[in-house]
């Protein structure tokens, strides 16, 4: 219970963003001709926003399982990085571990990696509740959207910025914690350069490749600087 209490405040911004995005996604499925069961099941078992939006198009296109699989791999490739970063943190979480890995979306990863967990709170349960709450927000939002369809109309323009604001704050907290910022600068410059060079639809993979390359090339100076925690 203490873990749930400690975890909840961290997930409030994610609630706002997941309901907004989830309802949007559910409505999108609804107006594309799918019953609410689709967003309900898909949000529960895929639990990855950007791919689920794309999956709507895939379901409306001719059957192409291999292509679907490859597109999923490409869109979700960033999770490989999250997994490498969480190898230590998810260690020793016992039976909760498979669920923690299953639910490791952008937001769960970011919170579980960066949150300052109070000492009297069990780390495993804290991370479990962060993941579970996020999962509940996303599935309930998507299902609600699928049920409501295009009935609802309210002025939510700009609400999606909640996600941007959250990642800005998490990045800022990270910068305040470390002495030197080599790897954050690498991430920022490479991502921005790839966004300009490759366009918004296909910059993630080259950005990941570039980050990996530079972190490998500058391993010595970065380790020496004690930049990393």
């Amino acid at each position: 219970m203490a873990a749930l209490k400690a975890a909840f405040p961290y997930t409030v911004p994610i609630f706002a963003s997941f309901w907004f995005l989830g309802i949007t996604y559910g409505i999108y499925m609804n107006v594309s001709g799918f019953s609410f069961w689709y967003p309900f099941v898909m949000s529960a078992i895929i639990f990855g926003g950007s791919l689920e939006f794309l999956a709507v198009n895939m379901l409306l296109s001719p059957f192409a399982p291999l292509e679907t699989f490859l597109v999923s791999l490409m869109i979700q490739a960033r999770h490989l990085f999250y997994g490498i970063a969480m190898l230590d943190k998810y260690r020793g979480t016992g039976f909760k571990k498979p669920y923690l890995i299953f639910g490791m979306c952008d937001e769960s990863f970011s919170i579980n990696y960066s949150a300052e967990i109070p000492e009297n709170v069990d780390r495993g349960w804290f991370m479990f509740f962060v993941t579970l709450l996020n999962h509940i927000y996303w599935v309930s939002g998507a299902t609600l959207g699928g049920l409501l369809g295009s009935v609802i109309e309210f002025n939510t323009e700009g609400l999606g910025f909640v996600m941007t604001a959250m990642f800005v704050v998490i990045l800022l907290e990270q910068l305040l914690k470390e002495k030197r910022h080599y790897t954050a600068v690498i991430g920022l410059v490479v991502s921005a350069a790839c966004l300009i060079g490759f366009g918004s639809d296909s910059f993630l993979l080259p950005a990941m490749g570039g980050i990996l390359l530079l972190l490998t090339a500058f391993r010595r100076p970065i380790e020496k600087a004690g930049d990393i925690l």
């Binding site: 960033r78 990085f81 999250y82 490498i84 970063a85 969480m86 190898l87 230590d88 952008d106 970011s110 990696y113 960066s114 996600m163 941007t164 990642f167 800005v168 998490i170 990045l171 990270q174 910068l175 470390e178 910022h181 790897t183 954050a184 600068v185 690498i186 991430g187 920022l188 490479v190 991502s191 921005a192 966004l195 918004s200 910059f203 993630l204 950005a207 990941m208 980050i211 990996l212 972190l215 391993r219 970065i222 380790e223 930049d227 990393i228 925690l229």
Partner: peptide
């Protein structure tokens, strides 16, 4: 090493991703 060095770079990448 990557496990420690990647996260700041990833957070920066996610901010860029949000602004894409």
């Amino acid at each position: 090493y990557l496990g420690h060095a990647l996260p700041p770079a990833i957070f920066a990448m996610l901010v860029v991703y949000c602004l894409k």
